[in-house]
């Protein structure tokens, strides 16, 4: 079962601070989406609203055509896993899994057991005394085994070491292929995960600045390097992010469609066109004044 998500003019205010400004987007569902944003960009606020952890201040959210907040049927279709989770005090790992199993309609016990083994989770240990990496592993185990039609992971693999993270990506991908659902991954480790995303959303300062297919963003970014004057000429009228100078050579990042003719012109003027990683694009797009220092 795949559920689509529609968000319309969503706003979230904490007192006088506005965390989300008029967010509007539509997700068809059944895909793996990447949500990128700097710390404090409003990523977690948005995800909290989707998961009914919070009620929005204005605007509407609809998942599978229904508003999810306090909607019993919808809330049990959206599983939101944050890094350290919300463990009951005194719950053991086994208790936490048992609680999750009793709440999620699509829970798969066998799959959960497999993940527990894979991550070597200590069933009898208190969930709150686990190491950060183990807490993350427990979180993703619950998230994956819930098989919720909308599953959201908010940097829930940050505390894990690289091998555990790669296990997660592998498990996520394989289970997604076997049981297609809507998955949203919010991350800082962009380069590691970018190849998993079908679509990418970038949030900055509470606004949605990008919503595209991953492949098309990738092709839109180019690093143009060459003699400074030629670079400036070429970059005229285009969206430019960042620039670096080394002697007479200049390098800028250009964002936008570049057809073959434009590319050939660039090369003929002695310019070099290079690729820009999604991570670099993200850094450029979300730059703030204090970053240069």
């Amino acid at each position: 079962m795949t559920l689509g998500i529609e968000v319309n003019k969503l706003q979230l205010r904490y007192g006088s601070f506005t965390a989300l400004h008029d967010l509007t987007f539509k997700l068809d569902g059944g895909k793996i989406y990447g949500l990128l944003g700097r710390n404090g960009s409003g990523k977690t606020s948005l995800l909290s609203i989707l998961a009914s952890f919070r009620l929005q201040s204005a605007g509407s959210v609809s998942i599978g055509g229904e508003a999810p907040f306090e909607n019993a049927k919808m809330m049990e279709q959206v599983c939101f896993i944050q890094e350290s989770g919300h463990m009951n005090e005194g719950f053991s790992v086994r208790d936490a899994l048992s609680l999750a199993a009793s709440c999620w309609p699509n829970w798969d016990d066998a799959y959960a057991a497999k993940l527990v083994k894979l991550y070597d989770l200590p069933l009898k240990k208190r969930a709150t005394t686990l190491s950060r990496g183990m807490k993350s592993a427990l979180g993703v185990t619950i998230g994956l085994a819930s098989r919720a039609p909308v599953t959201i992971f908010d940097e829930s693999y940050l505390g894990m070491d690289a091998p555990s993270r790669y296990t997660f990506y592998e498990q996520l991908l394989n289970d997604y292929m076997e049981h297609p659902r809507t998955i949203i991954l919010s991350t800082h480790l962009i380069e590691e995960v970018a190849s998993l995303f079908e679509e990418v959303l970038i949030i900055d300062k509470g606004r949605l600045i990008v919503h595209e297919e991953t492949e098309s963003i990738r092709t839109k970014g180019r690093a143009v390097t060459g003699p400074a004057e030629a670079v400036d000429r070429f970059a005229q009228g285009k969206t430019v992010f960042g620039e670096q100078k080394l002697g007479r050579t200049k390098s800028v990042t250009v964002f936008g469609e570049l057809d073959d003719a434009a590319c050939e012109r660039a090369i003929s003027e002695g310019l070099e066109l290079g690729p820009v990683s999604l991570q670099d694009l993200f850094v450029h797009m979300t730059k703030r004044k204090g970053d240069e220092q």
Binding site: I32, E170, E198, E215
Partner: peptide
């Protein structure tokens, strides 16, 4: 496409494309 996706750890839609 699914085997490709799993092997290279990429989104199956990308492999399909």
């Amino acid at each position: 496409t699914n085997q490709y996706a799993a092997f290279y750890r990429i989104n199956p839609a990308t492999a399909a494309k």
